[in-house]
Design a protein around this nucleic acid. Structure first.
Length: 727
RNA sequence: GGGCGCAUAGCUCAGUUGGUUAGAGCGUUACAUUGACAUUGUAAAGGUCAGAGGUUCGACUCCUCUUGCGCCCACCA
């Protein structure tokens, strides 16, 4: 063996060896208890950052542990098409390199181009997953937008439509004029912004606004029914007043939605461009008039301002109102939150649009339910399914505090807008011909059917992710074995987007939960506690760390000190320290190799009981017991998903107990018997460590085999049996 | 406005049912060593476990309040 451990010499070869042997496949433990995880699919166009490395490592530790326990273990790889994000990135490049936009191409052509772009990026991601040593079953690689997933998506859509859970409606939605698409409520990010706040005279009232450009359509003035200041005004009363483009007739509306504490307690409403105003308008059956179009241009209702962009028009409108003496005052230091698209950053302009929705509060009959507390054939809503799945304990969320957050979210959930006006994604499987509408898997027979041009929210296909890669709806065998998944390990920031949607989809389509457990991990931050992001340019390429210190060192450093659900601070020093640990293990192995003449050829024992019998020295016996105790501690931690505690304990033991004390002790008195014990215990230690540090443990294992130190046993440590105190 | 979390050694953090001198990594200091170890080993310094009160025989751990950070949700006419 070389003097020091050189990770570059081993890692790639060992990974290829494992893969070729088929050791990542569940079939190596055909009779084991099923254990399954699906990889949260990374965005195809991105690169793996340190957070992915962390997330993947947690899963690989669980997977390798269960595989060694003898479970029929499946870890399913895949990537996500990330509709909006991918198309936006492509369009940016298209514009930069070729000065072209999506409108220069046919739909088919454009889709093909984006897809090609996406898939060309995919290789890089997959290469990174290999480098991290992740034991994924590559033969099952899936993509959220491949043919099989398309079938799954269309099947899901059709089933929901037939149950009346998917409907089309004209509703106020979050419109991103920049990306020209709808954005879901939870895809909105509020950004603090300072804007002038205007107080205008509106007849006898004073109203406040930051958005004068929306005010053309305001012909209703709303006040609280209990507001004494306005007790002389009656609901439905009409008043004449002078407004931007001349005299108008306004109607008084009394509604609790008006806050008496705020400003004058009176507001006008713009139903077409505000969600709350829209609700008020619907409640009272008021007229709804569009003022601003898709692109942020004022419509004819704006009179002389028609055709202007809202950004430019604002100042001009205020100027005109000033001249008319309708401006009461302007507060220049008003700070408020502006809704923006979290992917792309466009400012949201609420609009009324015809969109597809998933009804979360509509009752339907769930024929086949395996969810505790929901009877087959009973009437439920999707919301109830999502709630019950967690309440019943069928899905356990860890850390537990996130369950509260989950319930709170569910309780406030509104119908889910699933249609997007972009091209890249799953096209809505609905076809129209005159007044006919057809929903199904394929275009219906006959001529002149036109498919809906919208695509589905990327989370619609992600919601199917626990079972669509297993072959649903065509192949049920895989489902039987591996669904529900044993555990899901996403970051906590994705709880609503994804975890909740998977519970919804699985509950409705399969009548069961998607997974038994959710382990929410934290965000990896840099030394200053900042999130890694492209804009801050503080990103760390995992491959750089791997190259410098080795995959094992990176994996170990990420897990060390990372308690469930807590954020992790990434520190390169920690990785360096773990590289030293790899080297320490290597040198422990070298010590054994150098002393092998003492033991010549022998079969190392993996049974603690057997070792206890063989051991002659009391000190050796003591270390057999200590190691057995360690094994029971480690397995306990792993079973409870306390990976950090397991990693910390094993590190401490290997270095500061086994090496510093035991090896130092045995060094002076080594004989044939002690050698056998020492070597056997060391190999047990390697097995305990393997899920965390797969490469160095395997490298040593292979060196031992090659040098005749370890005669029997399997040809890879990764399929050896995980040490348990009883065996 | 509603909710949640965090506060432990210079830095980054562990500490799961309340029980003897509170731990690790990195960093700092001293000494040793070419040894299986691009070092490693031995040892040291460093903490009224944010503050105040309470429960208890006993609190870093449970309860209440205060302070300082961070996050989520809602909403801003």
């Amino acid at each position: 063996m070389d003097k020091a451990y050189d990770h570059k010499k081993y890692e790639d070869d060992l990974y290829n060896f494992w893969e070729k042997k088929g050791y990542f496949k569940p079939e190596i433990n055909p009779d084991g208890k099923p254990y399954s995880i699906v990889l949260p699919p990374p965005n195809v166009t991105g690169t793996l950052h340190i957070g992915h490395a962390f997330e993947g490592t947690l899963q690989d530790v669980a997977i390798r542990y269960h595989r060694m326990k003898g479970d029929k273990t499946l870890w399913l790889p895949g990537t996500d098409h990330a509709a909006i994000a991918t198309q936006a990135r492509f369009e940016k490049e298209l514009h930069k390199k070729h000065k072209k936009s999506r409108h220069d191409f046919s739909r088919e052509k454009f889709f093909g181009m984006v897809n090609e772009f996406a898939l060309s990026n995919q290789d890089r991601i997959l290469g990174q997953l290999h480098k991290m040593g992740f034991s994924l079953d590559w033969d099952r690689l899936a993509f959220t937008l491949d043919e099989k997933r398309e079938t799954a998506v269309r099947t899901a859509f059709e089933k929901m439509y037939k149950k009346g859970l998917i409907y089309r409606g004209d509703r106020i939605v979050n419109w991103d004029p920049k990306a020209q698409t709808t954005v879901a409520d939870d895809e909105i990010e509020y950004v603090e912004q300072k804007d002038p706040f205007y107080y205008f005279r509106y007849g006898p009232f004073v109203i406040g606004t930051v958005r004068p450009e929306t005010k053309f359509g305001d012909k209703y003035v709303v006040m609280h029914p209990a507001d004494k200041r306005y007790k002389d005004y009656k609901h439905g009363q009409k008043i004449e007043l002078e407004w931007i483009n001349g005299p108008i007739e306004a109607t008084i509306i009394k509604d609790e939605a008006a806050d008496m504490e705020k400003g004058s307690g009176v507001m006008t409403i713009t139903p077409a461009h505000s969600a709350i105003d829209f609700e008020i308008a619907q409640k009272h059956g008021l007229d709804i008039e569009q003022v601003i179009n898709d692109r942020g241009i004022l419509l004819s209702i704006a009179g002389e301002f028609e055709g202007q962009h809202i950004k430019k028009a604002r100042a001009l409108i205020v100027e005109k109102l000033k001249k008319k003496g309708l401006v009461e005052k302007i507060d220049e230091s008003y700070v408020h939150n502006v809704a923006t698209n979290y992917r792309g950053g466009g400012t949201i302009e609420p609009q009324i649009k015809r969109q597809w929705f998933v009804a979360v509060n509509k009752e339907f009959v769930l024929e086949n339910s395996k969810i505790s507390g929901i009877q087959s054939g009973s009437e439920v809503t999707l919301k109830q399914i999502m709630k019950k799945a967690v309440e019943s304990g069928d899905v356990k969320i860890e850390p537990k505090r996130f369950e509260k957050i989950y319930y709170h979210w569910i309780n406030n959930l509104k119908d889910w807008c699933i249609s997007r006006q972009i091209i890249y994604g799953h096209q809505v499987p609905v076809w129209y011909r005159d007044d006919d509408l057809y929903v199904g898997l394929n275009e219906p027979d006959g001529k002149e059917w036109r498919q809906d041009t919208d695509t589905l929210d990327t989370w619609f296909s992600s919601g199917l992710w626990t079972f669509s890669p297993l072959g649903w709806p065509d192949d049920v065998e895989g489902l039987k074995t591996f669904h529900p998944n044993s555990i899901m390990m996403p970051g906590y920031e994705i709880l609503f987007f994804w975890v909740a949607r998977m519970i919804l989809m699985s509950g409705f389509l399969l009548g069961e939960v998607p997974f038994k457990r959710v382990y929410l991990h934290g965000i990896v931050r840099d030394k200053d506690g900042k999130k890694f992001s492209k804009s801050l340019d503080n990103g760390i390429d995992p491959l750089e760390m791997v190259d410098k210190y080795g995959t094992d060192a990176l994996r170990m450093a990420l897990i060390f000190g990372a308690a469930v659900g807590n954020d992790v601070v990434f520190d390169e020093q920690k990785v360096k320290g773990m590289k030293h640990f790899s080297n320490k293990l290597w040198n422990m192995a070298r010590f054994i190799e150098i002393n092998r003449t003492q033991g010549s050829k022998f079969k190392a024992q993996s049974s603690f009981e057997e070792l206890d019998k063989i051991a002659k020295h009391n000190t050796d016996k003591k270390w057999v017991k200590k190691t057995a105790r360690l094994a029971s501690e480690i397995t306990k931690h792993l079973d409870n998903y306390k990976f950090n505690l397991a990693a910390e304990r094993i590190y401490e033991f290997a270095w500061h107990e086994f090496a510093d004390v035991y090896i130092e002790d045995v060094k002076t008195r080594i004989d044939k018997n002690s050698f056998v014990i020492l070597n056997s215990l060391f190999i047990i230690l390697l097995k305990l460590l393997h899920p965390f540090m797969p490469f160095v443990t395997e490298a040593i294992y292979q060196e031992f085999r090659k040098n005749g130190i370890w005669i029997e046993g399997k040809d890879s440590i990764m399929i050896e049996k995980y040490p348990t105190p009883k065996s």
